[in-house]
Design a protein around this nucleic acid. Structure first.
Length: 153
DNA sequence: GCCAACGTTGGC
DNA sequence: GCCAACGTTGGC
């Protein structure tokens, strides 16, 4: 069992949007970074815990709890010339971009970035590192537990 | 809108 | 394989 933080732009898919979807589940389409892809393709397991993070918005931070809900499979948007995620170098015989389904479990108190930065227990979190741009990052078990407590505070 | 940081591309 | 140029991310 592993833990992850996954960024989503709430204008695109917020925690509320995903909770409103069929099965509270969304295909995590649009990742076009190899490191992030490899986490989904090689490391994630069904049932892994996910911190649902809102980025690119007025108050960025952790907004909900989710879980990995499928094994990896190809991201369909890479094959669609009309999609902004279209990749001309990918084809169905040779998919380049893989994704997993993510099931939203519940919305939590919004924990803004500055509050996360205040936490000594989270000092080494990847998301808090200077210049971090990765949309999917692993979360340590101790970090996961600490954030669980923050959500209840 | 700005800017820092970082990934990707492509010429050599 | 190097590295400069360029594009993207994302907080502010």
């Amino acid at each position: 069992m592993n833990y992850w933080l996954m960024k989503s732009e709430p204008d695109d898919a917020s925690i509320d949007d995903v909770l409103a979807m069929a099965g509270q589940t969304i295909a995590w389409y649009g990742v076009r970074n190899y490191q992030a892809r490899n986490f989904m393709r090689d490391a994630m397991q069904v049932g892994d815990g996910v911190l649902f993070y809102h980025s690119g918005c007025a108050v960025p931070g952790i907004a909900g709890l989710a879980e990995v809900a499928s094994t990896p499979y190809p991201d369909d948007t890479q094959f669609d010339p009309k999609s902004k995620y279209f990749d001309p170098k990918a084809d169905r015989e040779n998919p380049r971009w893989m994704l997993v389904d993510v099931r939203a479990l519940r919305k939590t108190r919004l924990i803004p970035l500055p509050e996360l930065r205040q936490q000594e227990a989270l000092a080494d979190m990847q998301i808090l590192r200077r210049g971090n741009r990765l949309s999917i990052t692993p979360v340590g078990a101790a970090e996961w537990r600490h954030i669980g407590k923050l959500m209840k505070a």
